[in-house]
């Protein structure tokens, strides 16, 4: 799914101009807890999260996350947007929709779960 279509389908706003809006995305992971993101995601993925702290950018850097969608109208502070610009060149997207709705809308358009490690297998 193209970034431009992702943004449109969740009534999103692109917070930076880091990425070509024609870039294709195929998988996502939804979580607020960064330890869950660190423990349970595998491979490159789009992250859907309500956590707007600077640590989101660290985790994205470690895992090779390819885009971050901030949900529920939670705007990351300017330093987070700056850090994303300085450290990674990945798109940051803002939406007022909930995590469930954001995930559901993207799933219905073909985005699939990233490879996942269930917690009882960690």
């Amino acid at each position: 799914m193209k970034l431009s279509d992702i943004i449109e389908s969740i009534d999103g706003i692109l917070l930076n101009d880091a990425a070509d809006t024609n870039t294709e995305y195929t998988s996502a992971y939804s979580a607020d807890l960064l330890s869950d993101v660190l423990a349970l995601t595998k491979g490159h993925t789009l992250l859907i999260t309500g956590t707007v702290s600077l640590q989101v950018i660290r985790v994205a850097e470690i895992l090779g996350i390819t885009a971050i969608i901030f949900i529920r109208g939670k705007m990351p502070p300017p330093e987070v947007i700056e850090a994303a610009k300085a450290k990674l060149s990945i798109p940051l997207i803002f939406t007022r929709k909930t995590m469930f709705e954001t995930s559901g809308l993207l799933y219905s358009k073909g985005i699939r779960p990233c490879e996942n490690v269930p917690a009882d297998e960690v």
Binding site: D32, L33, L34, S35, D36, S53, Q55, V59, V122
Partner: peptide
């Protein structure tokens, strides 16, 4: 901040 999931030590072990 997004921590305190109780996955830190299991994650380190894993």
């Amino acid at each position: 901040m997004g921590f305190g999931a109780g996955m830190g030590l299991p994650n380190m072990k894993q």
